[in-house]
Design a protein around this nucleic acid. Structure first.
Lengths: 335, 335
DNA sequence: CCCAGGCCTTTGAACGATCAACCCGCAGGC
DNA sequence: GCCTGCGGGTTGATCGTTCAAAGGCCTGGG
């Protein structure tokens, strides 16, 4: 707010007006049981009259806790989260607020060429108390760094291939592709292909595993039915065409992302109709013609769990190593 | 960071180590010309050795400026910005950081039933210094409220129909639909329909106006070529079907959003091929089959301008009424 | 010799809140 | 009479920083 001559009300001005001391005002707000009802009432009236709100900076400085969570927002869309970041951000912000925390965005600032520099800055200056990491890579150097400095954080996604104890929340990708296979089997398919990413990304491999395992459970063959590609439409279309060219080709596809699913649609535009299930239930899915079935991540639940784990660490002043694995939900949009 | 017994370095500990006073350390960082080179060097070494970073809360408390901008993130996708919020958020965050500000997200917290309550809270507690509003409605009560309290803010979108002076940045929607018409005329079309929203939203009406004006400039008729509908695929498909049923039907469409454009595609799936131009260049556009031409908003420029206008107000401690209108760019994806 | 003025540096006081300790009056137990 | 405990309230110190003012020291002019 612009300074217009009259400052905002402070705890001191409220105290003066109510004829009590600073601390009593503070107690009315933070420990009402220590104050007699009459006094409390008088103070509350003064607070209302002056429109007093405790200053956030001052309170946080004294308490040595900013109650702010950092979130690194990336420039390009990222596979795995696709363009769901806005939904996710809303959910995290909302749950954080319920716990008395706020969410602060940051990017790779150009002043720190090293990625860790940004994290170091935010921690050292006390700008944030902890982090939500939603794009954890294999061999991610941020994880050991944060663990070593005992900075609280929670990963969205298991810390694949990292030998360290940290808190995480993830969606069971294998279960999701498994559901997709079940669904397609239910529709009578026996030849179900899988289109995924190149191996190495933890959650990509996980989704592939779910397809393979569930196919085997149904007693179906997976030989020659899997292709790996980049996460873009053209590459996916080419890969799908390859699979369709084999003897006894697939009549349905499970894909690691909606983008790949669109690629399959592109490759099968002029041929016989095939069933496709995507992953992430991005806005694209419902807009396609015909609409696309897709595995939806329970972002609201993910956000809730992430905030819970992070706040637990901050309140107890320890790091935790709890992991939460949530089931996705297949959104069926067939015919 | 968790307290591990050894606290973070403070300005005092740096001073002690360098054998100078607090203020000298502060001067080295904030007013280097007041310090002799030798002393400065000694202090800098101490800073490096201890890894000192000025505490953000303390600095902001003293300066009475948090250098934080508030951004209301909404639950549902919103027409007009579509699902571009993540791109926009990244751009705003990045430019804000360059100016020494940070972006704080907030939602409609359940403790304040009134929308303004949240804004009041953020301002009164000093949590944020100003706001970026990206979803300004006609008759938006937030605008007069913020103006009256002299809280700095910038709108993404002109404050349509509001009689007040405030800073805004907008994309010239009429120019965008005009470009779309020009493009379609260049491809030989003379019957070009327009699919838009129900009148009342400022930017919706603006886009419709651009189509109408440009059609007239080309000497083309607009009679019976315009339909208004809700921003969803089914409604758009129905409306497009209506337009296609008239005598001398349109052979191409300009749409107020990509969602509407998808509706047109749906309606013309089995009939003769029509050219369609969407608006916003959402991720859907490039994924459709065939890909969709669309009018792209220069979000990076918008963000830059918004941050500039907001920071100007904060630095000068005044509200401004400057408006910035930016040209969109047609992304052509025809065959 | 003294004082003005520039340069560098230090000291005191904020900023607005909370924690810790203390104070006061009164009731109850020995 | 004295000590203890307790409900209700106050004061002082503190969080880590910056602003405002003052304090040395040195040089140069009167």
């Amino acid at each position: 707010m612009l300074r217009t001559g009259s400052r905002n009300a402070t705890i001191e001005s409220v105290a003066a007006r109510a004829g009590v001391s600073r601390q009593t005002v503070s107690n009315v707000l933070n420990a009402p049981d220590r104050v007699s009802p009459q006094t409390a009432e008088r103070v509350r009236r003064a607070i209302a009259e002056l429109g007093y709100r405790p200053n956030w900076m001052a309170r946080r400085l004294r308490n040595r806790a900013g109650r702010v969570l950092g979130f690194h927002i990336q420039a390009a869309d990222h596979p795995g989260l696709g363009n769901l970041i806005d939904r996710f951000l809303h959910a995290v912000t909302s749950h954080a607020e319920r716990a008395g925390y706020r969410l602060l965005l940051f990017t790779q600032s150009e002043s720190c060429e090293a990625e860790l520099g940004t994290y170091e800055e935010l921690v050292a200056t006390g700008t944030v108390d902890g982090f939500v990491l939603c794009d954890v890579r294999a061999e991610d150097e941020r994880l050991p760094w944060l663990v070593e400095r005992r900075v609280p954080f929670v990963c969205f996604g298991r810390p694949w291939g990292q030998e360290l104890r940290c808190a995480w929340v993830d969606v069971d990708g294998a279960l999701g592709t498994g559901q997709a296979v079940d669904h397609l089997v239910g529709r009578g398919h026996t030849r179900i292909g899988y289109l995924g990413w190149h191996p190495g990304s933890g959650f990509g491999d996980d989704r592939a595993l779910g397809w393979r395992r569930t196919m085997q459970r149904h007693g179906l063959s997976t030989d020659d039915l899997q292709e790996q590609t980049d996460d873009n439409v053209d590459a996916a279309a080419a890969a799908a065409s390859g699979l369709l060219a084999i003897a006894d080709p697939p009549t349905a596809f499970v894909c690691a992302s909606d983008t790949l699913a669109v690629g399959v649609r592109l490759a099968t535009r002029s041929g016989p109709e095939v069933d496709v299930v995507g992953f992430d239930d991005s806005p694209v899915a419902s807009l396609l013609l015909p609409p696309l079935s897709s595995v939806r991540q329970p972002l609201e639940d993910v956000a809730r769990a992430i905030v819970r784990l992070l706040v637990e660490q901050l309140d107890r002043n320890t790091q935790s190593a709890e992991g939460v694995l949530l089931p996705p939900q297949l959104v069926v949009r067939d015919g």
